[in-house]
């Protein structure tokens, strides 16, 4: 009898804790991902899973092996995914609620790229257009189709 009562008590505690956990989970804003105009350079699901690996591999190529014509450049990510305010100013991609920050806040992964890298494009000329020139070298089969739907649902 006492064993059974103990088990019930444990179950009650677990249920209560999961409720607390769920409530806590609800407090983290669901990511809002604004789609960049035109094509994503990879399919959304693929990019979501592999962007950190791509960036890590590419940073070696760019910095150490002088291979700068790569498609997966952080500057290109920023150029396409940065948002503008009504007055036309760029909002840093790592600002709360922005493309990079909203997902990273949701999954609880610290985003340190922009401790060193610029989180806004340099000048108005270098925006989605420039980045897309690079993206168009990607085989069509691999290319995602951003800008058409709410691809940001995890």
């Amino acid at each position: 009898m006492r064993v059974r009562a103990g088990l019930w008590a444990v179950l009650a505690v677990v249920v209560a804790l999961s409720g607390v956990w769920a409530a806590h989970r609800g407090r983290v804003a669901f990511p809002v991902i604004a789609m960049a105009p035109g094509h994503c350079i990879l399919k959304t699901a693929e990019m979501r899973r592999t962007h950190m690996m791509l960036l890590r591999a590419v940073r070696e190529d760019i910095v150490r092996r002088d291979a700068r014509d790569t498609r997966f450049r952080l500057t290109h990510c920023v150029a396409c995914h940065v948002e503008r305010t009504a007055s036309g100013r760029f909002v840093p991609v790592n600002a709360p609620g922005q493309f990079c920050a909203s997902c990273h806040a949701y999954v609880g992964v610290r985003l340190d790229c922009f401790d060193c890298h610029a989180a806004v494009p340099a000048r108005k000329g270098f925006t989605a257009g420039t980045a897309l020139q690079a993206a168009f070298r990607i085989p069509r089969a691999l290319r995602g189709s951003g800008g058409q739907g709410p691809g940001g649902q995890p």
Binding site: T75, V78, D115, C116, H117, A118, P121, A122
Partner: peptide
């Protein structure tokens, strides 16, 4: 110190 307003071609940080 922490750096802000880096140029995209010249990343630098603390």
């Amino acid at each position: 110190r922490n750096v802000s307003d880096q140029k995209p071609w010249a990343p630098r940080g603390k």
